[in-house]
Computed example of a mutant assay.
Amino acid sequence: MADVKVLVLVGSLRAASLNRQLAEVASETAPAGVSLQLFDRLGELPFYNEDVDGDNVDEVVQALRLAAAEADAALVVTPEYNGSIPGVLKNAIDWLSRPYGAGALNGKPLAVIGTALGQYGGVWAHDETRKSFGVAGPKVVEDVKLSLPAGIFDGKHPRENADVVQQVREVVEKLTAEVG
């Protein structure tokens, strides 16, 4: 396989977030020839506003769109906030969906995984994230699903759980297999 670049978006802004740690596991265990690049500036994005979208958008929006354009695929790692998508992630989806029909992730494979406090590990947020990205243009890889209840980590980094490490690696393998 040729070198594959995967853009990683984490829906939690918290430095010690388990979802950020899952993204670290994905990066650390990626197969040879696959590099994961975390875009760590979602909290800096202005709220999407079509009136300010255009040639002179904020630098952070340009950086997000460039990172997405340079990527071959995207991995979204997100918690569930109040039964849905974290606001910063939804805002990023809105910025990446433009220009309509030609966003930077249009047609590229995308997978959604993550962990949350509930017993279902964020299934609602992951489903909503897949739906929103599906409308926005990426090719959502539907058979890649990993929603982990946060309690399984027992206060430890996800890399300390061999089953989780294997599952995350398999997600990255399946995602990158979809790159055309």
Rank of each mutant, 00 (worst) to 15 (best):
residue 77 V to R: 12
residue 52 V to Q: 09
residue 86 P to N: 07
residue 44 E to A: 14
residue 34 V to N: 13
residue 32 A to F: 00
residue 81 Y to P: 01
residue 26 A to T: 05
residue 61 V to L: 02
residue 2 A to S: 15
residue 47 F to Y: 13
residue 1 M to S: 15
residue 51 D to G: 07
residue 32 A to H: 08
residue 51 D to W: 00
residue 2 A to W: 04
residue 61 V to P: 06
residue 18 L to G: 14
residue 8 V to R: 09
residue 41 R to E: 15
residue 92 A to L: 01
residue 37 Q to R: 10
residue 12 S to A: 12
residue 52 V to C: 01
residue 76 V to D: 11
residue 25 V to S: 12
residue 43 G to N: 13
residue 34 V to A: 10
residue 78 T to F: 11
residue 27 S to D: 10
residue 38 L to P: 05
residue 13 L to K: 08
residue 17 S to I: 01
residue 12 S to N: 09
residue 72 D to W: 00
residue 38 L to F: 07
residue 5 K to G: 11
residue 7 L to K: 11
residue 1 M to Q: 14
residue 31 P to A: 14
residue 63 A to V: 14
residue 35 S to W: 00
residue 22 L to H: 12
residue 16 A to K: 08
residue 24 E to C: 01
residue 6 V to F: 03
residue 30 A to N: 08
residue 76 V to W: 07
residue 11 G to E: 02
residue 43 G to V: 02
residue 88 V to P: 03
residue 51 D to Q: 11
residue 67 A to L: 05
residue 76 V to L: 06
residue 16 A to Q: 09
residue 6 V to I: 12
residue 73 A to G: 06
residue 68 A to R: 08
residue 91 N to P: 10
residue 70 E to G: 04
residue 16 A to P: 02
residue 85 I to G: 06
residue 85 I to S: 07
residue 59 E to A: 15
residue 74 A to T: 15
residue 19 N to V: 03
residue 77 V to S: 15
residue 17 S to R: 01
residue 62 Q to C: 03
residue 35 S to L: 00
residue 31 P to N: 12
residue 10 V to K: 04
residue 5 K to F: 04
residue 39 F to H: 12
residue 38 L to V: 13
residue 22 L to R: 08
residue 70 E to D: 15
residue 71 A to D: 03
residue 83 G to A: 02
residue 65 R to L: 03
residue 69 A to W: 04
residue 53 D to Y: 15
residue 2 A to N: 14
residue 6 V to H: 08
residue 62 Q to F: 04
residue 20 R to G: 14
residue 51 D to F: 01
residue 36 L to A: 12
residue 79 P to S: 04
residue 64 L to N: 10
residue 26 A to F: 01
residue 55 D to T: 07
residue 15 A to R: 07
residue 36 L to K: 08
